[in-house]
Design a protein around this nucleic acid. Structure first.
Ligand code: FES
Ligand code: FES
Lengths: 144, 144
DNA sequence: TATAAATAGGATAAAATTATCCGAATTAAA
DNA sequence: TTTAATTCGGATAATTTTATCCTATTTATA
């Protein structure tokens, strides 16, 4: 469904959010440990999230990553997915035609439409905040 | 969403089905041209579909690929996807945890569940027949 | 039986994704 | 101002996916 990079990006964002609530910066090392991902690769993904203005990086000694507290509720999954995988998953053609076009549909277009729209809706309406709160409360998990 | 191999596999199956209605065998060359895919790679995918008993191959001179006429309505998209990509797309965890487990859910589990179930339902209830008929009638297209 | 047309399948190559490594740049604190 | 901790970013490597090539095998027909 999503690329590994995107999976890591989502999980990393959630972990950063949790710590940002407590004004705590986290490092790629901590993140990788917590979400069970390769550290250097995770660092690269963090760079992408920083470039897309989803995550904030503080360079130098005692630095690390954070997300603005007042942004956590506003950041939606769709932004993260878009930053890493692009929008093909919910805007592209399911069978790889150059574009998904109502006027020139692929064989699965009508069947897929609702699935993809539900996915899109879900991604656009799920905030980092709710995902982070569920982790905090122990209702969901970032690894294993 | 799906791998290239799977996209080709689905489109190839539809094209074979259309021709099988007219008892016409088709070659990887014709298929690749019709679905705009690399021929040799397509041939490999056909081998997989044959092994999974979705497509029938007739070897030797005047041979080619076909699908049993009385099977076309019974073959569901899910079988093709499963044969090529496996079931991870609708049974695996959306964030890559080892398995999707109600008792140990990832942060997006509840949100994803319905999307994935709709996808699964769609794949399990869409037959090659209806896809082939829509191509035949000109309501949908296999390429561009 | 010989021939030609076709699928099967192994070997290889190219491209994309995933992953690692290391030095440069940055910055807080001693 | 020096040091140490840390992100940034380029180079490289490993793995997986996608794609190509070539030969072997199969089989209908002449
Ligand atoms: S054209 Fe293929 S999904 Fe719309
Ligand atoms: S545990 Fe991740 S989708 Fe179910």
């Amino acid at each position: 469904m999503f690329s590994k990079a995107c999976e890591y990006g989502i999980k990393a964002s959630i972990f950063i959010a949790i710590n940002s609530y407590e004004s705590k910066l986290v490092s790629p090392k901590e993140i990788a440990k917590e979400i069970d991902s390769p550290q250097a690769f995770t660092a690269k993904i963090l760079q992408a999230l920083v470039k897309h203005d989803i995550v904030n990086s503080i360079k130098g000694a005692y630095g690390g990553f954070e997300i603005d507290k007042n942004k956590i509720a506003k950041v939606k999954l769709a932004q993260i997915v878009n930053a890493i995988d692009g929008d093909a998953i919910y805007n592209g053609c399911g069978l790889g035609l150059h574009k998904c076009d109502e006027a020139h549909p692929c064989p699965v277009h009508d069947k897929f439409k609702s699935v993809r729209e539900e996915l899109k809706f879900m991604l656009e309406n799920t905030s980092l905040e709710e995902l982070a709160l569920n982790i905090k409360s122990g209702a969901s998990f970032l690894k294993v």
